[in-house]
Simulated assay, not measured.
Amino acid sequence: MEKETFDYSKVPHNFGLCAAADCSHADTCLRRIAYSHVPANITFLPTLNPKTIEAMAGKCEYYRSNKKVNYAKGFVCTTEALAVSVSGTFRYGLIGRWGIRKYYQKRKGETLLSPAEQQEVIALAKKLGLQKGEYFDSYVEEYNW
């Protein structure tokens, strides 16, 4: 894990933890790292069944890398740069994928955009004729919970 201190308060409430200490991927698995940082005042945990992990024989499908990912935060700059004639197509195209509430949360930067979602925004903007150097308002590095 990186040198920074792990902040358990950022672990999503329903994120499954892993108690398998003998796993060969324990040092880099976000689920195991989060488990090792659980505060003593938390009594009940969402934990993966150790028997399920054991049955996978080292090829865990629940492994989650502790490498941080670049998430985009907002794309107001893109919506403002679109021609008025295609702005509705852009907006409704993304609302169709994410729903209206998520669209506006992602547009304003209240909800981060994963790399896959960033590609959706860029692809749709390019399809509608927008060529920009940067399509997002800012970026943050976060764990891929």
Rank of each mutant, 00 (worst) to 15 (best):
T79F: 00
H25C: 12
E2K: 15
D27W: 02
G93W: 03
G93T: 08
R101N: 15
G109W: 01
I95A: 09
V140L: 14
F6S: 10
N41Y: 12
Y103S: 09
G133K: 11
K127T: 14
K73A: 06
I33H: 01
H37T: 05
L124F: 04
L130P: 09
S85P: 04
V84S: 06
S9E: 15
M1C: 04
A116F: 09
A26C: 08
L30G: 08
R101Q: 15
K10L: 02
L30W: 07
R91L: 03
L17I: 05
D137N: 06
N70E: 15
G16T: 01
A57Q: 15
D7M: 00
L94F: 03
W145I: 03
E141C: 07
V76F: 01
I122P: 00
A40G: 04
F6E: 12
L17T: 02
C29F: 06
L17E: 04
V140E: 14
Y143W: 13
C23G: 10
D22V: 01
E134W: 00
Y135N: 02
V140I: 14
I42G: 06
T28V: 13
V69T: 14
E120F: 03
L130I: 11
V69N: 03
R31M: 02
K126I: 01
P39D: 08
T89H: 06
S65N: 12
T47A: 13
I42N: 05
V84Y: 07
F15I: 08
K102E: 14
A83M: 03
I53T: 12
N66Q: 04
I100M: 05
S87K: 09
T78M: 02
S85R: 14
L113R: 03
Q119N: 15
R101I: 15
P115I: 01
R107M: 09
G74R: 04
N144A: 11
A123R: 14
Y62C: 05
F6K: 06
R107Y: 00
L113K: 03
E80Y: 03
M56C: 05
K73R: 14
S114M: 09
Y92V: 09
I33D: 00
V11L: 11
G129V: 05
Y8V: 06
F136W: 06
C18M: 10
A125S: 12
K67A: 13
K3Q: 12
E110P: 07
K126C: 06
M1N: 03
L17V: 07
W145N: 06
H37D: 10
F15K: 02
F136V: 05
M1S: 10
G129M: 10
K127V: 08
T111F: 09
T43R: 15
K108I: 01
Y35E: 02
A19L: 12
Y135G: 01
L128V: 07
L45V: 10
A125P: 13
E4I: 14
V121E: 07
E2M: 11
Y103R: 13
Y35M: 11
A83K: 08
A123P: 00
S87L: 04
L112N: 09
S36V: 02
I33V: 15
A34S: 13
Y104I: 08
A125H: 08
A123Y: 07
T111R: 10
A72R: 08
L48F: 11
D27C: 05
H13T: 11
V38Y: 01
H37V: 04
V69I: 15
A57H: 14
E61A: 10
E141M: 12
V84M: 07
V140S: 12
V76L: 11
T5P: 04
A72F: 05
L113H: 02
Y104M: 10
